[in-house]
Design a binder for these strands. Structure first.
Length: 423
DNA sequence: GTCCCTTTGAAGCCC
DNA sequence: GGGCTTCAAAGGGAC
């Protein structure tokens, strides 16, 4: 039997979609054994293979690895390979059956990362999420990636078992349309906007090419990440993909404090703790200097020409930074995500991620007194809660909202450190 | 309503 | 075999 993906929009799958238990009655909860490195991984149903019936290769008692791992609802009552037919932008009609491709390792990792972040996360744009996932993915060691490749192989085996005659048949567009855009864009310079010749024509955003920062080695990138997430790298089982937090947290508090509240403050935090989420080094034993050279992941990533996709919801910052406060510009405060060329409301994301009550539109923000706990923040990233980097202090800071302008003030972060930290 | 965006990797097609 | 292209997920945004 041959499944024609190229005509998927018009194809009727010979395999019906079952909403109930699969025809083989595989258990909805079954033991999915894995190597030790999987010990902290529990993938939800649709992270692996949302098939209503587990293939023999994944059935309990016929495991591919050694240690058991329960994966709730794996292969339960929905079919990932068929589900995609109705979820891809509504392109494919639910009445026309389509067999989706099995997800690759990165797709599995990305899906899991997104699920790990929780529902409270206000960042919904998949472009940004994909970028972050890609950064983390590339920062992983080969061994850690192998974990996901292994899972991908299992999923593919499941897919193969479910659709034994399946063959990927890409629907090649017309040579003209494909080559005029894709060949010039996808493999050319990264992230440049291509405008149609007509000024009123559509502006299409070229895909970012797969680039690394120039002159930055993988080891250097890993070093920067190690500095921020030491526990993730010191795990006896090695770096699990899940040891990365769902997102790179913005950790600019000491900077904000230094600039706006106590310019000469000296932090007692260990050196390793005085970096922001992207590895910006902050002096911990000496007064923080605005001109402190920055190094680390942020600087490395700054070489990337990543795309920003601001939207109507993009976080607004007003005006220029005054000279008096220019010792540490707002950009420094925003540096974490901005270095990833994320929209400004990525900071919005960070704040919201820490304070769930503030999720939503700007209207949901309060004018003052907003605060978050760093430790609360990282509790969303399981591996970070045990990290001494994040467990030693709690701090609150807020940024007042200028109600007249309906914008955040760009100059006055307000900081409160609680007793767990020494200023 | 439809397609784009954004990522990595697998796989197919074409030369 | 190399180069190029499509498509897996995901949901907001654009048109």
């Amino acid at each position: 039997m041959d499944y024609d993906v190229s005509n998927s929009r018009h194809m009727i799958n010979s395999y019906p979609v079952h909403l109930g238990p699969g025809p083989l009655n595989y258990p909805q909860h079954f033991v999915f054994s894995q190597s030790p490195i999987f010990s902290d991984i529990s993938l939800p149903l649709d992270d692996l293979c949302r098939s209503q019936s587990a293939p023999p290769c994944l059935e309990q008692g016929n495991n591919l690895f050694n240690s058991p791992l329960s994966i709730p609802q794996l292969f339960s009552n929905c079919d990932v390979f068929s589900l995609a037919a109705s979820t891809h932008g509504g392109v494919r009609s639910s009445s026309k059956e389509h067999i989706p491709r099995p997800p690759n390792a990165f797709m599995l990792y990305r899906s899991h990362m997104l699920k790990s972040r929780g529902n409270a996360d206000p960042e919904k744009r998949q472009q940004n999420l994909s970028r972050i996932a890609g950064q983390l993915w590339r920062a992983m060691s080969k061994e850690d990636r192998a974990v996901w490749h292994k899972k991908a192989a299992e999923v593919q085996a499941a897919h193969c078992a479910k659709y034994p005659g399946y063959k990927f048949k890409p629907n090649r567009k017309s040579a003209k349309s494909a080559k005029t855009f894709q060949s010039d864009a996808y493999y050319s310079k990264p992230t440049e906007q291509v405008c149609a010749e007509s000024s009123i024509g559509p502006v299409r955003r070229v895909r970012s090419s797969r680039v690394r920062p120039q002159g930055v080695t993988r080891d250097a990138l890993l070093g920067a990440l190690k500095k921020q997430f030491p526990s993730a790298f010191s795990s006896p089982t090695g770096l699990s993909p899940l040891h990365f937090p769902p997102f790179l947290p913005t950790f600019s508090l000491p900077e904000a404090m230094c600039v706006n509240e106590q310019p000469n403050a000296t932090l007692s935090l260990p050196q390793s703790q005085c970096t922001n989420a992207l590895g910006l080094e902050l002096s911990s034993s000496q007064p923080l200097q605005p001109t402190t050279p920055r190094s680390g992941l942020a600087e490395m990533l700054s070489g990337l020409d990543l795309d920003a996709t601001p939207t109507a919801a993009t976080f607004q910052r007003n005006g220029d930074i005054s000279e008096s406060d220019a010792s540490m510009s707002q950009d420094d405060i925003f540096l974490g995500m901005e270095q990833l060329r994320l929209p400004h409301n990525s900071m919005d994301y960070d704040v919201n991620g820490l304070s769930p009550l503030l999720h939503g539109s700007m209207d949901g923000y309060q004018s003052s007194g907003q605060s978050f706990s760093c430790s609360d923040a990282f509790s969303r990233a399981p591996s970070c809660t045990s990290d001494p980097m994040f467990s030693d202090f709690m701090c609150d800071f807020s940024m007042p909202l200028d109600h007249e302008r309906d914008e955040w003030s760009n100059t006055s972060w307000m900081l409160n450190m609680d007793k767990n930290s020494n200023i």
